[in-house]
Design a protein around this nucleic acid. Structure first.
Lengths: 220, 220
DNA sequence: TTATACCACGAACACCTGTTCGGTGTCAAG
DNA sequence: CTTGACACCGAACAGGTGTTCGTGGTATAA
């Protein structure tokens, strides 16, 4: 069920108040800022927000409110950091280094920390730094960092790192299954033409989850 | 001056309570958990904590407490989190929305949390979501989020958002000063040719610090 | 000893705060 | 029309909450 305009304003006010003051507002503070004269109406709408799962309420406790939306979590739940191992470099002419798969051995090299806001499911993620211009058709430049998830297969349209057996080359493309064993590899740049290959000649090495490009300094 | 054992316990309780419940404790809640029967004693010690700069108090407000010490920052900030306001969208045909500059008004929209690892200096940063394909020559796609820093000028080679007065258009390019008033705008994609303009016809709106692209779902 | 901070206690006060209840108006289904 | 669900209002109540005041103990310096 959708929220009324009032409920929306109440929710926004709570999050803003929480961020500014560091504590939840009282019922009357909400009412006066949202334009509700009666505390019972605020209470009424708060119960609806609670029923919809947007906030949690604690009974008979002053300021017993709590925003449970994902936006609030990124602030409060500062534990919401995800550590991703930076496994190495990726270039067109080499297969990508894959993570060791026992899941226990800790990666002792560099780690990349990202918030859960950006990577929803941190399972099986690893990061690679791109060398060279070969993936420029995927809008990925030298120096970019790609965060990938281990995968052997892909849904239609997912951006994947694909090893081309016949060319001995890694490429980043969107993968679509066509009729038979034909696979269409679609560059991310919409001005470029797709590329077709036989399913037996390609090997999906992982899905691309995130691309991060830092521009403080020029790529070498 | 050092803190007494009681003050130390009070401070620890406040931070723990705040973390667990998402709101500051009342004076009586502090008293009962720290073992102080009188509210005035708690009040007395809270004033000392405030004088020492460890907390902030708001007068005559229930739960008017706020942990402010560097230890509180360690929750969000020493982990290296930086909050960046997501100001809106950027498209080729519109000037970018710039941050209000009074430094006091808080942004009440969405925030983007990043680690300091990625953005070294969080001063004056803001984020925009790119609409449309017009910046594909800068290797930036529809849906990408660019993190920018407010700036009127740029060093040679820095990636900037440039407003082209004669074309009424925003573009992202590397900026180089040439002889006279000539400015060279170099697309990021090395296969593309640079573009020249008169310095009086362009306006630098900010430097691009970071580009983030999420690929979980297809860009619309 | 006296004086002076410092720290603590309990009680009382005035206001704040969540809750509840009776009542009003609107709108769609019966 | 009647009914019921929904959204809202104002008022009142009981308990929560910050503040203040008078009091007393303990240590250190005069």
């Amino acid at each position: 069920m959708g929220l009324s305009d009032r409920q929306h304003r109440i929710y926004e006010f709570i999050t803003k108040f929480m961020r500014d003051k560091g504590r939840p507002p009282t019922i009357r503070e909400i009412g006066s800022h949202v334009g509700i004269s009666s505390t019972s109406v605020v209470n009424y709408n708060l119960n609806i927000l609670a029923r919809e799962g947007l906030i949690q309420r604690e009974k008979e406790v002053s300021r017993g409110l709590r925003v449970v939306g994902h936006q609030a979590k990124s602030l409060a739940e500062s534990v919401g950091l995800v550590q991703i191992p930076l496994l190495g470099k990726i270039a067109a002419g080499t297969p990508i280094p894959l993570p060791t798969f026992d899941g226990l051995t800790k990666h002792d090299g560099e780690m990349l920390a990202l918030t859960r806001e950006l990577v929803t499911d941190p399972e099986g993620l690893f990061a690679l730094e791109v060398r060279g211009d070969s993936m420029i058709d995927a809008l990925i430049n030298h120096g970019d960092v790609v965060v990938m998830k281990r995968a052997q297969s892909a849904q239609n349209g997912e951006m994947c790192a694909v090893w081309l057996r016949d060319k001995n080359e890694t490429t980043l493309k969107r993968v679509y299954r066509e009729k038979g064993n034909r696979i269409r590899l679609q560059p991310m740049n919409p001005t470029m033409k797709p590329f077709y290959a036989d399913a037996r000649n390609i090997e999906i090495q992982g899905k691309v989850i995130l691309v991060v490009r830092q521009l403080q300094k020029l790529p070498a």
